[in-house]
Amino acid sequence: MRFLLPCLLCILPLWAAAADGPSISRIRDTGVIVMGYRPASLPFSYLDANLKPIGYSIELCERVIAAVKRELKLPELEVKRVAVSSATRLPMVANGMLDMECGITTNNAERARNQAFSITTFVTETKLLSRSVDGIRSLRDLRGKPVASTIGTTSIQYLHSINEQEDLGFRILAGLDDPEAFHLLRTGRARAFMMDDVLLRSMLAQLPSPQGYEVSEQALTVEPYGIGLSRHDPAFKQLVDSVLIGLYRSGEIFAIYRRWFESPIPPLGINLQLPMSAAFKRVIAQPTDTPDPAHYR
């Protein structure tokens, strides 16, 4: 795992080296690149009115795909889009079923043992969503109560860990995806839903009447997102990183960010009005793929 990328200029022309990697060789031979996406993780990766995957993470991966098409002279390159869930995404990357996983996956040290990640593409924090009348401000307010999160996520792992460490007596309920976990809260089966802040806010924004819910102020964890990649193909990682760094260096990333986080997005015209965090601005200025949460605080 590389942490800080020390020389931005010297890693941009990577195509000759990348062409020798197994991913590029397979893409050239088959004429197909495989992209994993999340169907319901607005605004990162979700389906539009025509059931086409769109979103912030999808756009970043599409920039990589455009570069592959151009450099390999494959204008008709087929893009195979495969839906993944929080439970299936990591094994599919590790098993080589995906060239890129373009969703909302946190880069941490445990996951990095089985797969690689691009440089960080977003930084968020986990928080609690609850009904306002319940007065939930922290995990300790949930002692002995049911708490929901999503299976296969760092959030549910954190809940299990803190529950054991502090003997809080949670009953942890797992949704198969984020909307199902949110449904556990909405139907009263859970008293709170722990998840990444931006995802909580995006789900609230999709409700016809979001009043009555609130997101806690306290951040529980810091989560750096990255594009999921094979750990056995450092050349393809270099290629992906070079495209992202190009977006960061040119400043184009700011327009992409505004398009998905500070503007009305399809299909409902929701505007999350979420300014870019100071942590992500630092990543843009000095790209990194470190999984260490302390680096982003």
Results as ranks from 00 to 15, higher is better:
Gly251Asp: 10
Ser242Cys: 11
Asn50Cys: 09
Leu128Phe: 04
Ala66Val: 02
Ser202Lys: 02
Phe170Cys: 09
Ala294Cys: 04
Val79His: 12
Ile151Lys: 03
Asp99Gly: 10
Leu9Arg: 13
Ser130Lys: 06
Ala190Pro: 02
Pro6Ile: 08
Ala192Cys: 02
Ala83His: 01
Arg2Phe: 11
Leu14Gln: 11
Glu59Val: 06
Ser263Leu: 01
Asp134Phe: 03
Leu274Asn: 09
Ala174Lys: 02
Gly228Ser: 11
Thr121Phe: 01
Glu166Lys: 15
Thr120Asp: 05
Asp177Leu: 06
Pro264Arg: 05
Thr221Glu: 13
Thr120Gln: 03
Gly152Met: 03
Ile11Val: 10
Trp15Tyr: 09
Ala49Val: 08
Asp99His: 15
Ile151Val: 14
Arg186Tyr: 05
Ser202Val: 00
Arg63Asn: 13
Leu12Gly: 08
Ile245Gly: 04
Gly269Asp: 01
Pro293Trp: 07
Asn108Thr: 06
Cys7Ser: 09
Ala192Trp: 00
Leu60Val: 10
Pro146Trp: 11
Gln238Trp: 04
Val283Met: 08
Asp292Asn: 15
Arg113Ala: 14
Val82Trp: 04
Gln165Trp: 09
Pro6Glu: 10
Val68Ser: 07
Glu166Asn: 13
Leu47Tyr: 12
Glu110Met: 01
Ile253Glu: 05
Phe236Asn: 08
Ala285Glu: 14
Arg63Trp: 05
Val283Cys: 01
Gly21Cys: 04
Ile24Met: 15
Thr88Tyr: 12
Glu110Asp: 09
Gln206Leu: 04
Ile24Leu: 15
Pro22Asp: 03
Arg111Pro: 08
Val198Pro: 02
Ser209Asp: 15
Gly36Lys: 01
Ile58Lys: 00
Ile172Thr: 05
Tyr296Lys: 07
Arg38Asp: 13
Met276Val: 13
His160Tyr: 14
Gly169Glu: 06
Tyr56Ser: 10
Leu173Tyr: 00
Gln238Asn: 12
Met276Asp: 08
Leu51Gln: 15
Arg171Tyr: 04
Phe236Asp: 06
Pro53Phe: 09
Pro293Arg: 07
Val82Arg: 07
Gly152Asp: 05
Arg113Cys: 04
Ser216Asp: 03
Arg89Thr: 12
Ala205Trp: 01
Phe122Asp: 11
Ser230Glu: 07
Ala279Val: 01
Ile265Ala: 13
Leu268Gln: 03
Glu223Cys: 10
Thr288Asn: 13
Ile65Pro: 14
Met92Ile: 03
Tyr296Trp: 02
Ala112Ser: 15
Arg191Gln: 15
Thr153Tyr: 10
Leu199Asp: 04
Ala19Cys: 13
Gly135Trp: 06
Ala16His: 13
Val147Phe: 10
Ala174Val: 02
Ala67Trp: 11
Ser85Pro: 11
Ala83Thr: 03
Leu247Glu: 15
Leu77Asn: 11
Glu262Asp: 12
Val79Lys: 12
Thr187Trp: 09
Val93Thr: 15
Asp167Val: 00
Gly152Pro: 11
Ser242Gly: 14
Val240Lys: 06
Val123Asp: 00
Glu252Val: 03
Thr121Pro: 06
Gln165Gly: 00
Ala83Asn: 00
Gly96Arg: 00
Lys52Leu: 14
Glu71Met: 07
Leu173Arg: 02
Ser155Tyr: 01
Val147Trp: 11
Leu42Asn: 01
Pro75Phe: 12
Arg137Asp: 14
Gly21Asn: 06
Leu5Glu: 15
Ser263His: 10
Ile104Ser: 11
Asp197Pro: 01
Ile136Lys: 08
Phe254Lys: 08
Ile245Asn: 02
Ala87Asn: 10
Ser161Lys: 13
Ala116Gly: 12
Cys61Gln: 06
Ala67Gly: 07
